[in-house]
Simulated assay, not measured.
Amino acid sequence: MTTKQVIVITDGDEYARNTIDYLAKLIGGTALVQFADNPTTSSASDVIKAIQQANENPVYVLIDDAGVSGIGLGEEVLLALESDPGITIIGAVAVAAHTKNLEWSRVSFSIDQEGNVIGNGVDKEGIAIPEIGRINGDTVYLLDQLDLPVVIAIGDIGKMNGHDDISKGSPITRKAIELILEREGIRGEK
């Protein structure tokens, strides 16, 4: 059995869906945007089934718990992916939120709204925050408990005061995905 390589995106709103769908067509991979929602409403078994049927790596999985604390469906999907032997999570794009110190995660690094790779965390607009190596956000705290090879923090996908707009090619989100792929040495493997 071939292992499916998954990139987790911790956002599921319309902007995130459109951006990831657009970038998957440019970069390669399979975007499971049909399961993206804010909050996540799909079951882990449905998402895993779709991952197994995906034609191209990486598979982009969007999870979102819309600011609800505790274990929601988004976190349940993430836990199921982590424990499935046929799936390897090669990285995560952790999206910052306005929540303050309720849910947070350590991150490998961040990309600010100007496209700079930085050691500090970022806020929802992609502006550096004083925290080094961590961000506040929805769903992200669970990333901290998993052994993921790379977690990249960015601001709100497709937004960041227009810096990540799809009309500009969503450069911040694209850079985060490309850095994960570069570290894993894959690009559109079948």
Rank of each mutant, 00 (worst) to 15 (best):
M1N: 12
T3M: 10
K4A: 05
T10N: 05
D11F: 01
I20Q: 00
K25A: 15
L26I: 15
L26S: 13
G28K: 03
G29P: 02
G29M: 07
A31C: 06
Q34K: 13
F35A: 06
A36D: 03
D37G: 09
S42W: 00
A44C: 09
V47R: 01
I48A: 08
K49S: 15
Q53L: 11
E56R: 12
N57M: 01
D64K: 01
D65W: 00
V68K: 13
G70E: 05
G74H: 04
E76W: 14
L79S: 13
L79W: 09
A80N: 10
A80I: 12
I87P: 04
T88N: 09
I89G: 00
V93G: 03
V95R: 01
A97R: 07
T99L: 11
E103A: 08
E103F: 10
E103G: 10
S105I: 08
R106D: 14
S108R: 06
F109I: 10
I111A: 13
D112N: 13
G115E: 11
G115C: 09
V122G: 08
D123P: 02
G126N: 05
G126Q: 03
I127K: 14
I127R: 09
I127Y: 09
I135F: 15
G137D: 03
G137M: 02
D138S: 15
T139Q: 07
V140T: 04
Y141V: 08
L142A: 11
D144T: 09
L148S: 08
G158W: 04
G158E: 01
M160T: 06
G162F: 08
G162P: 05
S167I: 15
S167N: 12
T173V: 08
T173D: 04
G185L: 06
I186K: 04
E189P: 12
